[in-house]
């Protein structure tokens, strides 16, 4: 019961921190934009070639098409391209992970300053992540490698039990990452040290972690139903049945539902990110963190004579 109360206090704090510092969402947007630009840049040559009708460059990879009969011949042609293709894909994947980790660390480091009663701007947050650049780079490399391994194994395993075991391992990995990144942001540890610390933190906060995560998930769902689904259905109904055939209104109703889901998802993701740092502070300091309120601490704030 205590764990649920503490989790609720931490979820409320996460909401307040985000409400008073909406610029935090910009880190998630910037990371999304960065990854989009990166993948866009990586895929543009392919798109340009396709657009100009040049499909010759695709020939080495044609074995993905089942219609091609002569697999041996194709494999021989593909062989020399595997290494550069694999290296390019790995480099793009790593760069994407690096962008995400960097902005996440900037977000988490900013949250730590905010809940410690300090002011921070978007630019200062980026500076805090830059101070941790070594740890960020190592974590991105480590996490990209684990991500690739998990995905590769998923493709190879066809045994039911093995797939379930891999699923559990993936869940464990996601949980470890959930609490390890605040450690990287706050302490700048190496990946293995951060993983070990995240294990310690999880042992202390598992109840609050699950309850807090579920709380934010339930909050997202409730808000989406209220702000996204209900108005969407009403607009759809009004468009089709009430005001004559106003298809624009009906379409807006249909469009609003996924759009609101994305917007609420963005807010929920940001709240979850704040919660990650709040959980870290709770585990390390032993106290549910609170925003600093001068009046409530009046006893202890009198200046020295």
């Amino acid at each position: 019961m205590n764990k649920i109360k503490e989790a609720w206090a931490m979820v409320k704090l996460s909401g307040r921190v985000l409400g008073r510092n909406p610029f935090l969402v910009a880190y998630i947007l910037a990371s999304g934009l960065g990854v989009s630009v990166l993948f866009g840049a990586a895929l543009t040559p392919v798109a340009l070639n396709l657009n100009s009708g040049n499909t010759q460059f695709l020939e080495p990879y044609a074995n993905v098409l089942p219609a091609q009969a002569d697999r041996k011949k194709l494999t021989d042609r593909i062989e020399p391209h595997w290494a550069p293709l694999g290296a390019t894909a790995a480099a793009v994947y790593f760069a994407g992970t690096l962008i995400i980790v960097f902005f996440n660390v900037a977000f988490l480091a900013s949250v730590k300053r905010i809940i410690n009663g300090k002011k921070v701007t978007f630019k200062e947050g980026l500076g805090l992540a830059w101070e941790r650049r070594g740890a960020v780079l190592q974590w991105a490399l480590f996490s990209a490698t684990v991500g690739v391994l998990i995905n590769a194994l998923k493709g190879y395993l066809d045994n039911w039990l093995a797939r379930r075991v891999l699923g559990l391992a993936e869940l464990g990995w996601r949980l470890a990452v959930f609490l390890a990144l605040p450690v990287v942001a706050a302490e700048g540890l190496t990946p293995l040290q951060a993983l070990r610390r995240s294990g310690d933190i999880f042992r202390k906060t598992w109840g609050q972690t699950f309850a807090g995560g579920l709380g934010i998930g339930a909050f997202q769902l409730a808000v989406w139903l209220l702000v996204g689904v209900v108005p969407g259905i009403v607009l759809f109904y009004l468009g089709l049945y009430n005001t004559g055939a106003n298809y624009g209104l009906a379409l807006a109703g249909v469009g609003w539902m996924p759009l609101s889901l994305i917007l609420i998802g963005l807010v929920g993701e940001s709240m979850l990110m704040v919660l990650r740092m709040v959980l870290y502070v709770f585990a390390v300091e032993g106290v549910v963190p609170e925003e600093y309120k001068e009046q409530e601490c009046a006893w202890f704030v009198a200046p020295r004579a």
């Binding site: 410690n116 300091e285 032993g286 609170e290 600093y292 202890f300 020295r304």
Partner: peptide, 24 residues
């Protein structure tokens, strides 16, 4: 002896002010 304020202690130790207040 007069101890530092909660805020000063929290800032110096880079901790949440609520933690410093709890210690006091």
């Amino acid at each position: 002896f007069q101890l530092p304020t909660v805020r000063a202690l929290a800032e110096a130790l880079d901790i949440n002010p609520n933690t410093a207040a709890r210690a006091y």
